[in-house]
Write a protein that binds this DNA or RNA. Structure first.
Lengths: 191, 191
DNA sequence: TTTACTCCTTGATAGAGGTCAAGCTTTTTT
DNA sequence: AAAAAAGCTTGACCTCTATCAAGGAGTAAA
């Protein structure tokens, strides 16, 4: 089974590409294996790629002035990740992306994506439709952060993504939800 | 000066449209005037339109079970707003959109946008590029919410958007930042 | 110029959740 | 299998900020 099956199925849920277009698209994909705890993106370096996870788990996080980690995104199979600001503006990244497990990812360079999107209309449609949904999800997360208690956010996440919650360290989930690891531990013990 | 100047300039910052394409695009725009305190989107009704603000100010907010308001977005001239989840999935809205001033907006129906985007490649590009930046901004807001104190978030916003902060009621900004109005008042009095 | 909103401020109080510290458990490495 | 590293739990304490309550200021309506 092709390594590209996942991403091509993902695209096919939104648009229909011809065989030629599929070939053009897969030709810009770089396959990369990363070991657990290895960094794919680091502050100071431009995040050159949009990354798609074929297998494994990756988190993107911000390290603040006090040395505390704040997780921007947690991705498993069939998720995209990058430091979007760095990727779009070709400026040094502010975030780290770290493999939480040995992972296999597909990387597509900014220039290649832009070139293909400007030439292949359906591919442009795909990214537009995909990202509109990502934005809708991000809005939900913002509201959850400002309107819900730590306990509510924790159970909401665990119920919505049990397969992810059971797969990642609790301190990562804590830093994603904006809760201290100790509080997560206490929330769990309460029930 | 045309009422469409703002949105066409916005598009022109990303892509070049032909005169015919511009005409097709402007033909789907519905011009709507809304009075201060009037609702454009309400829970229970599908958010049919992507809305662009020509003149005025609009906020989108969520009303929780306890009757508290949580502001999703604050927009002034040259901003888009909608309940994206409702708009994309044709499901009843969960948010309100309320005019903070008498406003003039341009409304484009989901079906019309999709039809044009599937036919006019540069327009699809425009929305893709625009929304990628919106997503990048949304990520920044998430990190700000989980990593910064109320006081830091307040001054960050005021320094970044002084023209908006001075134009909207403080309780709206409070509910956007996830801070109580009383705390905002105390933060201000502290300096 | 009263009346009535709407919005903002200030004080008192309480509680959610952060921090620090120590010990325990599980996983990884050698 | 022992050692080391990584991750989780629990207790004590404390701080930030939400909440409740009351009053003040500014604006719009009558």
């Amino acid at each position: 089974m092709s390594i590209y099956k996942g991403i091509l199925d993902n695209i096919a849920r939104y648009v229909k590409l011809t065989d030629d277009e599929i070939n053009e698209f897969t030709s810009i994909l770089k396959t990369t294996r990363i070991k657990k705890r290895q960094f794919v993106i680091q502050p100071g370096f431009v995040s050159e790629y949009r990354n798609y996870i074929v297998e494994g788990a990756v988190r993107v996080f911000y390290l603040d002035d006090l040395g505390k980690e704040h997780t921007v995104s947690i991705g498993i199979e069939d998720w995209f990740f990058t430091d979007f600001h760095s990727y779009l503006n070709r400026t040094p990244a502010e975030y780290y992306a770290e493999a939480l497990e040995d992972s296999l990812i597909l990387q597509m360079k900014y220039e290649d994506v832009e070139e293909l999107c400007s030439r292949i209309h359906p591919l442009c449609q795909y990214f537009r439709l995909y990202i509109e949904r990502a934005l809708s999800y991000s809005n939900t997360r913002v509201i959850s952060n400002i309107s819900k208690t730590s306990e509510e956010r924790y159970w909401e996440y665990v119920n919505k993504y049990p397969q992810i919650a059971n797969r990642i360290p609790q301190y990562v989930l804590a830093s994603y939800l904006g809760i201290s690891p100790e509080s997560i531990s206490r929330i769990r013990s309460r029930s």
